[in-house]
Write a protein that binds this DNA or RNA. Structure first.
Length: 430
DNA sequence: GCGATCAGAT
DNA sequence: CACATCTGATCGC
């Protein structure tokens, strides 16, 4: 591919400006401490966290841009070399700390790249982002929308994070004598932990590098790396498994809580005694905490999926109706999904094309941003290979999560095979 | 020996 | 077959 003017969450050489939406590693694949292909624009919070992930990065390349402000760049057309000014505004994506979407305005019209985002209908911060986007668009429709389509399927129906967090709190409160482990990633779901901490007046254990992150984010007191100070521990999701829980329960009664928009269930593993934690929307386990917070009979709620494991629909991505709402608001002429979730990749057009704008009269006069813009996107067709979402090995870490003195080793742990995923494709329940 | 990339795990 | 991440192997320098 020849380079364009700008790249969003893509790091190959050839662009005049680079944009980072947030610091999750599937969006930084190709970035490294030695990367130096051009100026990199990101939010203040992302810049603050940046050195943790890329310690020796040339700081001079980072350009902190304020959320809600228009910024101007004098670029040149890659084909003709003539001036091609662009304006862009970062807008709060409410995904993980520092996450923003970018709205671009230029000869290509309006291009909106959401990155990963959440678009809840209530809450002060959500309203602010909504108004910011509407003001910035100023009545214009979006010509090209690059959309976080992670849950772009009506099957994905879950509550706000506020509500989901309350469900987590109820689970913890109803297990007063249990240790609790919660599976999280290196960034994201801080608000969940804060809400737990405030509500139950308890500190939260995190692993050492996560504590550094928390301190950089400005939470000096709530988190600790001393297990003796709390029974609630947030552990890396990759070390959260049924085997982990069973090992922990051999020492103390412990339950695990998996906050996720994905439908985790326990599936019996054929031929062996072990069950495995798998994904499915076909779950039938009993529902907890259905205390009137549900507005939709299909709304996911907390579930007990195993003796020791609960899942709670706490997601940093939009549920389907939020995506729908977002598309209705931005009235895009063209939409592309930026996320390939392999087995359930959904072209946004499949469910939402009726909301797209059409008859784009000025389209011919506008350049297709494809030739101007490199963005992280993968279209999935049939058995095409999926996006490689693995880490880039950019930094050596030794963060073996050692919670409760149980070191989780791969050795001698029965492999969990047969992750039978069953996302049942069906038509809209409406 | 190091970074980049890949295979495979949770 | 995974929202994102880590570990370890291998390749190229």
């Amino acid at each position: 591919m020849e380079g364009g003017m700008i790249s969003v969450d893509r790091w190959a050489r050839g662009s005049q400006a680079y944009f980072l939406t947030h610091l999750h590693s599937d969006h930084t694949r190709g970035l490294s401490s030695t990367w130096s292909h051009g100026p990199l624009f990101c939010s203040r919070t992302t810049a603050k966290l940046f050195p943790l992930k890329f310690p020796d990065f040339k700081f001079a390349l980072l350009r902190v841009v304020e959320i809600g402000s228009w910024h101007h760049l004098s670029l040149s057309s890659p084909s003709s070399g003539s001036p091609a000014p662009i304006h862009f505004m970062p807008i709060d994506a409410f995904h993980c700390p520092g996450a923003v979407m970018f709205l671009f305005k230029g000869i290509f019209g309006h291009v909106l790249y959401t990155g990963d985002f959440r678009w809840e209908a209530t809450g002060e911060r959500s309203m602010k982002a909504r108004n910011m986007l509407l003001d910035a668009l100023h009545g214009a429709k979006v010509d090209h929308l690059y959309l976080d389509n992670t849950y772009c399927n009506p099957l994905y129906c879950f509550p706000t994070r506020e509500v989901a967090a309350q469900q987590v709190i109820e689970i913890i409160a109803s297990h007063p004598d249990h240790d609790i482990i919660i599976g999280i990633d290196s960034l994201g779901k801080e608000d969940l932990l804060l809400q737990i901490s405030r509500s139950l007046k308890i500190k939260i254990w995190v692993w050492p590098e996560r504590l550094q992150t928390m301190h950089l984010l400005g939470y000096p007191d709530i988190f600790t790396t001393r297990t003796s100070l709390t029974r609630v521990r947030a552990v890396p999701r990759y070390s959260f498994s049924m085997n982990t829980l069973e090992a922990l329960n051999a020492k103390r009664p412990t339950i695990g809580i998996m906050p996720s928009g994905l439908p985790w269930v326990v599936k019996p593993f054929e031929g062996k005694m072990k069950d495995s934690l798998t994904l499915s929307v076909a779950s039938t386990n009993r529902t907890l905490a259905g205390n009137g917070t549900r507005v939709d009979r299909n709304m996911k709620s907390a579930e007990k999926v195993h003796d020791h494991i609960f899942t709670v629909p706490y997601s940093d991505h939009c549920c389907f109706h939020e995506i729908k709402d977002f598309v209705q608001l931005t009235k895009p002429y063209n939409v592309k999904g930026i996320v390939s979730m392999s087995f359930c990749y959904v072209n946004p057009a499949y469910y939402l094309s009726h909301l797209f704008s059409s008859n784009h009269s000025s389209q011919k006069t506008r350049l297709d941003p494809e030739i101007l813009m490199e963005v992280e996107k993968v279209e999935r067709k049939g058995k095409m290979k999926i996006r490689d979402i693995r880490g880039t090995g950019l930094k050596k870490r030794t963060n073996k999560a050692n919670f409760m003195g149980v070191r989780i080793r791969r050795v001698a742990i029965l492999r969990q095979i047969s992750r039978g995923v069953k996302i049942v494709e069906c038509d809209s329940p409406d």
